[in-house]
Design a protein around this nucleic acid. Sequence first.
DNA 1: GATGCCGGGGC
DNA 2: GCCCCGGCATC
Length: 286
Amino acid sequence: MTKPELSPVAARLGPLKVLRSTRREWRTTVRRAPPRLPSNSAAGNWATAYVESRMWRPGLGDGVLGVIVAVRGRVALTTKYGSPLAGTPTYMNRTLFQCTWPGCVVITTSCDSIEAHVRTAHLGPRGEVSSSDNGYGDEDVDFDDHEEEFYYTEIELEEAYSPPTLSHRDMARPPHEDPEYQKSLLNSSLPYSRRFASAGPINIPKSTNANTAPWSFSATNVPLSTASPVKHLKLSFSAPASKLPSSPTRRVRGETKKCRKVYGMEHRDQWCTQCKWKKACSRFGD
DNA sequence: GATGCCGGGGC
DNA sequence: GCCCCGGCATC
Ligand SMILES: [Zn+2]
């Protein structure tokens, strides 16, 4: 199983709350159509899957990488960065594996994991597959070993746009670790907050214009071999290079003159403290 | 170009 | 906490 080298995906991939299971079997937990999802926005075409973390560093315990969200063909990945486990999400550089068993949206980070999932959850509870060790069933022997390969796909994460430096500024975004946040986005009813700047990449705007989504989604069938029709799903993330015009994220400049304008640079000592610090003026508030 | 100020860094 | 500044949006 080849794992293409991919450039690091910017940590701005996701601000959402990290879902976490206290159970060992969380890996097979799947949610479809979250109960409180507004019916008018996602129209049932919605899936959430826990992402397995085999890459988790020791001491961090079992965890969930994030949540794959698919809404009307747009796919978003939320991650765990910014959480108490903040760190370089190295698993973002790689390929994810998604179960394609009908109705199942389990996603794992390794080929072995998804194969194990398919075997245990779908093909049978036993680690071994079907009839090869029974002595009969000679006809389908050649499919016995890797039948699970038919029931998962690779998902490549790659960067469609890479800012010149994503090393230090772009890596630290405060996560909105609020479970309602995701629904608010989908609902497009999140309350206005002027300090919402750069909150997150998963802007699923109310408009259904597909070009406004930061994620692009494409699927291709790659004939790797005759026996493994692995479907490659590419998730391309576009950093906000072409921003939406006049996002509601930044404070609108008021019309009142502020200290800088009133007193001028030459009387900087007369400015209010906030103006001296290039913060929002506290003397001539809007 | 000037202004306002957010985010971030140094101390 | 205080203080400063880069960079960006806006005027
Ligand atoms: Zn002021």
